[in-house]
Computed example of a mutant assay.
Amino acid sequence: MVGEPEPGSEPAIAVRGLVSRFGPQTVHDGLDLEVRRGEILGVVGGSGTGKTVLLRTIIGLQRPAAGEVVLLGEPVAWDGSTTASLAGRFGMLFQEGALFSALTVGQNIEVPMRERGDVPKPLMDELARLKVGLVGLPPDACGKFPSQLSGGMKKRAGLARALALDPEVVFLDEPTAGLDPIGAAAFDELILDLRRALGLTVVMVTHDLDSLARICDRIAVLVDKRIVVGTMAELMRDPHPWIQEYFHGPRARAAFETATRTSARDDGEEH
Rank of each mutant, 00 (worst) to 15 (best):
A102R: 13
M113A: 09
Q107C: 05
G133P: 09
L103Q: 14
I109K: 05
E115C: 04
G106A: 08
R116F: 03
R116Y: 12
K121T: 12
S101F: 14
P112M: 10
K131S: 06
Q107T: 04
N108C: 07
L137Q: 14
G133T: 11
E110D: 13
L137I: 07
A102G: 14
L103S: 03
I109T: 04
L137C: 10
V119L: 13
E96D: 12
L134E: 06
R129Y: 14
L134F: 03
E110F: 06
L123Y: 01
M124I: 06
S101I: 12
L123F: 05
L137F: 10
V111D: 12
A128Q: 08
D118T: 15
L123T: 10
V105D: 03
L130R: 14
E115L: 12
T104N: 05
Q107W: 02
V132L: 00
E115Q: 15
L123G: 03
L103K: 04
D125M: 11
G106I: 03
L134M: 13
G133Y: 00
M113N: 02
G106T: 04
G97P: 02
P120W: 00
G133S: 02
L137E: 11
D118H: 02
K121M: 15
D125P: 07
V132M: 11
E96S: 11
L123A: 10
P138D: 07
L134Y: 02
V119M: 12
L123W: 05
V135Y: 00
V135T: 09
F100W: 06
P112Y: 01
V119D: 10
V132P: 00
P120S: 10
K131F: 01
V132N: 02
G136L: 15
G133V: 04
R116T: 10
E115H: 01
A128F: 06
S101K: 12
K121G: 00
E115F: 04
D118C: 01
F100A: 12
E126N: 06
E126L: 13
E110N: 11
A98I: 09
K121V: 14
D125N: 09
T104W: 13
N108K: 13
Q107G: 12
P122W: 04
L103V: 13
M113L: 14
G97T: 01
L103P: 11
E110C: 11
R129K: 15
P120Y: 07
R129S: 13
K131R: 11
F100D: 01
T104M: 00
K131M: 02
A98S: 01
N108M: 01
E110K: 12
K121C: 01
N108R: 08
T104G: 09
K121P: 09
V111G: 07
A128L: 00
L127N: 07
A128D: 15
L130S: 07
L134K: 10
Q107M: 02
L127K: 10
I109E: 00
E110M: 15
I109G: 05
P120F: 07
L134H: 12
R116A: 08
